[in-house]
Amino acid sequence: MWKFLHRLASPPHFYRIAINLIPWFAMPGLLLLAYGTYAGLFVAPADYQQGDAFRIIYVHVPAAYLSMMAYMIMAVSAGIGLIWRMKLAHAVAAAVAPLGASFTFLALATGSIWGRPMWGTWWEWGDPRLTSELVLLFLYFGYMALRNSIDDTSKADRASAVLAMVGAVNVPIIHFSVEWWSSLHQGSTLVRKGGPAMDAAMLYPLLAMIFGFTLVFGALLLRRLRAEVLFRERRKRWVRDLILSGNGKR
């Protein structure tokens, strides 16, 4: 196991292994998404309070969960890269940030569309989850902006790693403070999304969607990471050999 991980951490090996790894994430992920979408849209009964609008959670909850997961992956790999000077870890942080921002945007957009029939507005400042997702999106923007404004890759890696780690300490605090703030709003009794006692016919599609999203996210990350690794190693001998041999075009 350790040997496998160690080999995976070396860029040439990662580049070769990743392309074979992607289908193992993408195929079951897409199958789960297909099942979850079908069951979520047609099999699961309508919520007695929210009617059919509750079906939006089947894409909203996985997107929101992955948006935070991506930030955690980014901060942890940035920390690993900073402390142990692992090249691949910095590449992971660089590759995961735009994906995290995309999923944060998706969570915001679907949450906003859900809010339209439920609250009667596209945006409700009183909802702490939407507001902290918005702050999370700004955090991603800041991270990517810092990365883009430093030309030297190694310097950009380490500077953005410091930011990601300081940000990771702040993310739970931001969430907590936004929650505290919105709890002070009187009369903002929001309809709970889902709820603790969920019918199995509603829950299974949701679990399928969460796992499916995670696997597809993994496949997307691997593909981004492959391009990132190739770019970072562009002056290395193994890349030259790879190109001359004509393999690895995919």
Binding site: F138, L139, F141, V166, I174, S177, W181
Partner: peptide, 20 residues
């Protein structure tokens, strides 16, 4: 501009608690 972009979201808790 970059400094504001980096710091403003992180400063949110201070702002929220201070003002509220």
């Amino acid at each position: 501009a970059l400094l504001s972009l980096l710091i403003l979201p992180l400063a949110m808790p201070v702002l929220i608690f201070g003002a509220r």
